[in-house]
């Protein structure tokens, strides 16, 4: 696989996992469930140069080209991660405007998915993202004694053909039953039962919009932005111009991850702030996660990072609990 390009996959970092470039397959650790940062970092980097400019040379601009001489292979992405990638694709590539930087990186990437069994923080059963049907080239389902591999693109098919000795095309009744058993086992392991995200959540969000639980969450929130950084479908960015220290007139325009939870996020010229309170910023975040994002439905994929990482335990499930539970 490494003959196709750079392989990226989950590796262990102290007691956590991160996606990193794999130089030796022994460093890849497929026992992982979730990485600290989601895979978006490889398509929408934390910091990314849009172009550089030379004010001296009539504002001449240069755009760094993506090195597409070799592919990137992302190995071992779980369904929530691929679902999140599909949402990001829709957001960056399929609106009225396509983002060329994202598109270049996305088109040059091969995605190999890998099945998983949920832990206590997973809730992709609620968001309908425990399985994925598009956005990958190959998907490997671990059935303990062997793997069931789903092929979803010609690129994926080419990989199978080139490695035929590893694959068996005949799927027996036993294989099918093993897969069914695996699906049932996975489904029975989820700890959180909130039904379906599409079930009246828009109306509940609307009706609860001025409920005092938001103010309570606002009081607890630290405005640190961890939820947005760790969320696989958050994509807000700021744009800044940076000038060279050494040479007058040289500089570059860069975008960097921003967070709707930070106080300055909605401030316009003249210091008018459209979102003064932390509660109002939390409402924006959760309406994008639960109701609509980029004009296209809820964006939460149930990965559990907000549960794991928020220092004051504000997360999607807690908000959903507040939205849905009958308060007597």
């Amino acid at each position: 696989m490494s003959t196709l390009g750079d392989v990226w996959g989950p590796t262990k970092k102290q007691d956590k996992y991160v996606f990193s470039k794999i130089n030796s397959f022994t460093t890849m650790n497929l026992d992982y469930l979730r990485t600290i940062l989601p895979i978006k970092k490889l398509f929408f980097p934390q910091k990314q140069e849009l172009f550089s400019f030379n004010l001296g040379e009539g504002n001449k601009k240069t755009i760094k080209a993506v090195d597409d001489s070799k592919h990137r292979i992302l190995f071992g992405l779980h369904p929530c991660e691929i679902n999140a990638l599909n949402i990001q694709d829709g957001f960056f590539m399929f609106g009225d405007y396509s983002d060329p930087y994202y598109e270049d990186l996305r088109n040059n990437t091969i995605v190999v998915g890998y099945s998983c069994l949920p832990d206590n923080n997973c809730f992709c059963n609620f968001t309908g993202t425990s399985d994925v049907d598009e956005g990958y080239d190959l998907f490997i389902n671990n059935l303990d004694d062997y793997y069931l591999v789903f092929v979803n693109s010609t690129t994926g098919n080419d990989i199978v053909i080139q490695n035929q000795e590893m694959f068996d095309e005949d799927i027996s009744k036993i294989d099918l039953n093993n897969y069914k058993k695996w699906v049932n086992k996975r489904n029975s392991m989820f700890k959180h039962e909130y039904g379906d995200i599409t079930n009246n959540i828009t109306k509940l969000m609307d009706l609860n919009y001025n409920d005092e639980f938001w103010d309570k969450l606002g009081e607890e929130c630290l405005s640190c932005g961890t939820c947005t950084i760790s969320c696989p479908t958050c994509s807000c960015y700021n744009v800044v111009d940076k000038l060279s220290v050494g040479t007058i007139g040289l500089g570059f325009r860069e975008r960097e991850w921003d967070s709707c939870q930070l106080p300055q996020f909605s401030v316009v010229a003249g210091n008018v702030d459209f979102r003064v309170t932390r509660a109002s910023r939390l409402k924006l975040y959760y309406s994008h996660k639960l109701v609509t994002y980029g004009n296209d439905g809820p964006s939460c994929v149930g990965c559990g990072r907000c549960i794991e990482q928020c220092p004051v335990d504000i997360n999607v499930l807690r908000v959903v609990k507040n939205l849905t539970e009958v308060d007597l």
Binding site: Y97, D99, Y237
Partner: peptide, 19 residues
């Protein structure tokens, strides 16, 4: 009026609810 960085619906600063 809203804060805007991109103008093309990507940077997220001008988000108002789902719009």
């Amino acid at each position: 009026e809203r804060r805007m960085k991109c103008g093309i619906g990507k940077c997220g600063h001008c988000a108002i609810d789902g719009e």
